[in-house]
């Protein structure tokens, strides 16, 4: 196996254009190698590439690791970061790797959906920005071309003040999401609800959002209806980790609880 360590983004992009496999923290890639699903012959290591590790309120470089996001990221993304694997995994794994893998269970992804983030893709011929729903196209499938790198996550400069993340797993840590969810809410009531592990890509529960956004102080009945809508809108499957029925149920419960947390913070 050949590994190159590019000195700058340009060299990295040239390597990718030349067919080399990008390696960031390796916490997804090496698992696939271990299971014999991938056998990359030529690898370009992004780990030391400072060019894609920038961090600002509106831009998170692809090479930023979960450990940093856990401390410095926007609230709901930091909460999500805290649930990724174990300290060892968070010290190595990057948000760019999470976005590039595009697993339906990627814990960093619902946040991107909730705040309508864009993914910056860069190749030798320049950069383009794709909105999250243009970028994620299926289970582990994205609109990224093979000569492109994910270089950053681009966020709006007015993220919702209230944002909450939660994740259901069968174990208290180190677990793949059965369902994960982000709810954001603005002063004017505008609410977004994004979920992971309940569809091929991260998704928004638009009908539930629309219904709740016009409610200033929702009643019990409204909250229950909100949860029901979320459960209805998600499209989960039954597999060895859980059942469709449970995932629907848990999606509704989580969304409601996160909304209640936002409302409580609003009141406070």
């Amino acid at each position: 196996m050949e590994v190159i360590h590019p000195r700058n983004l340009e060299e990295a992009l040239a390597a990718v254009a030349d067919g080399m496999t990008p390696l960031a923290g390796g916490t997804d890639l090496m698992v696939e190698v271990n299971y014999g699903q991938k056998r990359p012959e030529r690898v370009v290591a992004l780990r030391r590439l400072a060019d894609i590790a920038d961090f600002s309120p509106t831009r998170i470089g692809a090479g930023v690791r979960w450990r940093r996001i856990e401390k410095e990221g926007p609230r709901a993304l930091a909460q999500a970061a805290r649930t990724v694997g174990s300290p060892q995994i968070r010290n190595a794994g990057t948000i760019g790797g999470n976005v590039a893998t595009a697993s339906p269970a990627g814990d960093g992804l619902p946040f991107l959906a909730a705040v309508d983030a864009s993914i910056e893709l860069t190749s030798g011929s320049g950069s383009r920005l794709l909105r999250w729903d243009e970028y994620f196209v299926g289970v582990k499938q994205t609109a990224r071309r093979s000569d492109e790198l994910v270089t950053a996550i681009v966020l709006a400069d007015d993220l919702p003040e209230r944002q909450e993340f939660a994740k259901v797993g069968v174990r208290n840590a180190m677990v793949i999401s059965t369902v994960c969810c982000v709810v954001t809410r603005r002063e004017d009531g505008a609410t977004t609800v994004a979920l992971g592990s309940v569809a091929p890509t991260p998704m928004r529960a638009r009908r539930a959002e629309e219904m709740i956004s016009s409610e200033r102080s929702p009643s019990e009945a409204t909250l229950a209806e909100f949860a029901r809508l979320v459960s209805e809108e998600v499209a989960p499957i039954t597999d060895h980790r859980s059942t469709e029925e449970y995932r629907r149920h848990a999606a509704g419960v989580l969304a409601r609880r996160l909304l209640e947390r936002c409302l409580r913070r609003e009141a406070a």
Partner: peptide
Amino acid sequence: GDLPGGSGLTTEPRH
């Protein structure tokens, strides 16, 4: 600090 759901923040004491 050890609620059901652990670091997933699913659960509050009232649940």
